[in-house]
Design a protein around this nucleic acid. Sequence first.
DNA 1: TTGAAAGCGGTACCAG
DNA 2: CTGGTACCGCTTTCAA
Lengths: 335, 335
Amino acid sequence: MSLDKVARRAKVSTATVSRVLNNTSVVKGSTRARVMKAIAELKYHPNLHARSLAGGKNRTIGLIASNMENPFFFDIYKPVEADAHARGHEVVVANTDYRPEQLVASIRLMIGRRVAGLAVVVSEMDPALIKELTESRIPVVFYDVGSPRPNITNIRVNYRRGIEKVVDYLHSLGHRRLGFVGHHARLAPINERMRAVLDAVARNPSLEVKTAADADTLEGGRQATRSLLASGYSPTAIVCVNDITAVGALRELRERGIRVPQDVSVTGFDNVKLSEFCYPALTTVHIPRERIGHIIVDALIPQPGAAAAEHEIVIDPEFMVRDSTGPAPSASRKR
Amino acid sequence: MSLDKVARRAKVSTATVSRVLNNTSVVKGSTRARVMKAIAELKYHPNLHARSLAGGKNRTIGLIASNMENPFFFDIYKPVEADAHARGHEVVVANTDYRPEQLVASIRLMIGRRVAGLAVVVSEMDPALIKELTESRIPVVFYDVGSPRPNITNIRVNYRRGIEKVVDYLHSLGHRRLGFVGHHARLAPINERMRAVLDAVARNPSLEVKTAADADTLEGGRQATRSLLASGYSPTAIVCVNDITAVGALRELRERGIRVPQDVSVTGFDNVKLSEFCYPALTTVHIPRERIGHIIVDALIPQPGAAAAEHEIVIDPEFMVRDSTGPAPSASRKR
DNA sequence: TTGAAAGCGGTACCAG
DNA sequence: CTGGTACCGCTTTCAA
């Protein structure tokens, strides 16, 4: 059960057992064998808490996300886990479910665990929390939040550009009446993607838009679309905040007998795998989750040889045209 | 940074600081206030490792899954987290990605963390590992694995029944040539769902089946379907191991111009939310993930008042008919 | 190459 | 109501 039971059984000191466990310094072959034997016989499993307490180190990094349910999260988690393991670290995740209190709790928990690094992939956060975090001296990577500070790396995706590409494309197809399906990011009262749509519309007098929002889920996208349409508004194109909600929108439209893209065009965002598998396949904007994952680990667990990671990284997303968008119906029929 | 810095600053003993932190016993109002003040000023965050080492307790439970990417996992994670939090516990998850080595590593990690309880939601596992686990004295819940033992609870879904319902239904619709799309559960050479299909077919001489398997992902389902069809075999119905792979199958069929359900019927399994949102909506088998989540927490974190949880729980899944299945084409055309 | 012992940061029991 | 203090299980000098 504990180190010294093993030591006793192998007739050595706890120091020696510790040495073979971590194979530090050189232990004589025969002693090592005796220790290993004792460990096996006792089914000994070192207490990780004691280990990090004594060692003052902790080979685990934390990853906090606002919605683990969205495959977007998993796509960044995966490379993070792989890279972290490759560097001998574990990763522990926390889900905030878009709840500010949960974010605070999760961050405190991570600090309490004395993680070696922390990645926070949420939409927005309180400046006080950021302060608390910087003062904890833990290396932190933010995705989509705040500005870089000492020991803080910031990854930012240029949503504005991405949305502009979407809106421009729809405009070029003749769409003038837009709809925007967002989600309640309780943490982000001012959703950058939505703002970008509104701004793009404001810039072009011939465009109009109406917005609706619900949960960041398939069902949420469907509900938002429903309320968008319930008002009597009939957009020719619906821009969704992400792929998941877009798939929800697709369903609502289908059930109303509205064809996509003949009657209404739909766009997603993120380019999650599902966007290729739904029907019709979504026109969307690609965000390189894998790359983001690598950046996170590089920033959190610096490699001996590697150059210091950048502190501010901006990603310009790529537009992907698929089958859910087409010319505005009025463009061919009404004219 | 540490308890006694706080103690020093508040001019009290570490014992007192500990008391206010855990608000055990009664601390005089004024002293408590001083301590709180010191804590705030120092931005003190208790070291959780020290805490669990000293206290000998650990209010966290572990959850190991073989594929976090499948929404099935999240649907069970969610209630587990909610219930655990309600009982003052944290939950830490681990993903094995169907890799046996990773399963071993994850289990060892959990034991090392001295979790208060562990839920293992994987397809299959080594008896030696089960032994290691029972000897660790940690309360364990298995989903779909092994048999109940002391301090081990077993939740089992009657896949066989579920699959039988699917096959019977397809048979009643006139389907005779079946396809089965499975996945490489490297941990489960003998996949129960596949066996059930094979057995059902064996029992009925008029039925034939061919199987294919790939990854447990959208893409995997598509690939498996592709290889199923590449052989020249033309099933009138494809039974998929779960909803995700079924959605992959749907895409492959669509791209080949094969209509579902007119030309080929498709079935999923799990009744994940996506099964309602894909097109066409999947006929599937419902597995009550939420209920499973509750069972897990009840078994791992027993409540004072509650009765002891059962040690063996069998769930009979429910069949759900939706739009991806229909009469076999030959049934109406050839006859 | 190995052992003894001083912590790491808390908790909890025992006095006062 | 508060302080002193013996651990919890392991890592890490310092000596031998």
